[in-house]
Design a protein around this nucleic acid. Sequence first.
DNA 1: AGGGTGACGACACCGAATGTCATCAGCCCT
DNA 2: AGGGCTGATGACATTCGGTGTCGTCACCCT
Lengths: 197, 197
Amino acid sequence: MSWRIVGAVTRWEPNARGRLEQAALELFGEHGYEQTTVDDIARRAGLTKRTFFRHFADKREVLFGGADEFKQLFVDGLTGAPASAAPLEAIAVTLEAVADAFHDRRELARRRQRVIMANAELQERELVKLAGVAAALAAALRERGVAEPAASISAETAVAVFRNAFERWVAAADRRELPELIGESLDALRGVTAGRR
Amino acid sequence: MSWRIVGAVTRWEPNARGRLEQAALELFGEHGYEQTTVDDIARRAGLTKRTFFRHFADKREVLFGGADEFKQLFVDGLTGAPASAAPLEAIAVTLEAVADAFHDRRELARRRQRVIMANAELQERELVKLAGVAAALAAALRERGVAEPAASISAETAVAVFRNAFERWVAAADRRELPELIGESLDALRGVTAGRR
DNA sequence: AGGGTGACGACACCGAATGTCATCAGCCCT
DNA sequence: AGGGCTGATGACATTCGGTGTCGTCACCCT
């Protein structure tokens, strides 16, 4: 199927996983998630269905290959916050750091988000990934000495704030940048919990 | 299959949906979610696989039949809060109201939660249901005059607080009741956002 | 009495997901 | 140079979730 015919240095075309991700994003964008079969993706990548499932646990996972790095952004951001910072300050620092990583990827984020928002199964998976981020954040907060249930509540809130800002960031309407939107969401949180009407 | 032989008043045994839910919860508890096929569930309920899918959109949904009522508990609770209450106060009132509905269902909640916690697919679906609650809460908050993004952030936070308390409530270790745990989680939230270390 | 309705069974079918075995280029070891 | 090992892949078979379609039949309404 995908051998190099001449001057072969390897038996297979390299980066099978990346080709699958690329093919999947294209096909999902062209025909939608449900209308695309795993066979379609594998064929476009020059592979077979069986090989797809060797690289991804299921059809959805092909869109979430970066989830671990994403989670790590949060954990590293929190680790990088000054030990003296109170939880909410540390979270603010963390979210700024995460936002940095997205600075030049707004268009990519939009394409991916459009695919996800068009399908309930994919939104389900996204929620799981965000829950994983929250769990990792909670563990990192406990590491900083924050007790339960404050650590878990803070972590969930942090993710909620980020997601809220992120969704507005990828929405075509808003031209503001992610850090500003995060600041706005954080202010809204502070306002609400301060008892402001 | 399931006709009443004598004295039939209806062609079919009544409450097919309820029987399917009952059979599913039993089988999931006995052999696990993955080890139970839809055919197994349908047979125990005296029905066929095809009929199962007439009552539930997919295999997971059989465990989430009460999701709409659950969501409505939140919305009604918020609607019942005094119009003068600030968002966080209104949320506190709402969560108390929701907790009331679970007062005498701790054991049922535990059995169901054990099944869900044992399977990733089911946790995924639970996250979706909770996201639906958050969305409904956000809409209800906007109805009360809370602007975005405060409404969405508040709603997500409210759900996070409830979930945190609920999980501790169903954990065998804790003997305290749900309202107290909710209060504790709310206090943790207030503490964190007040900048307390 | 007759036609409509709604719930269900029977059957066929698609696609996601997994187990198993064969294949073969590159590598290491002698 | 030769032989065996390894790891990624293809090929094939199978299970199960999910759907489309049609037939059946008690119930209901007129």
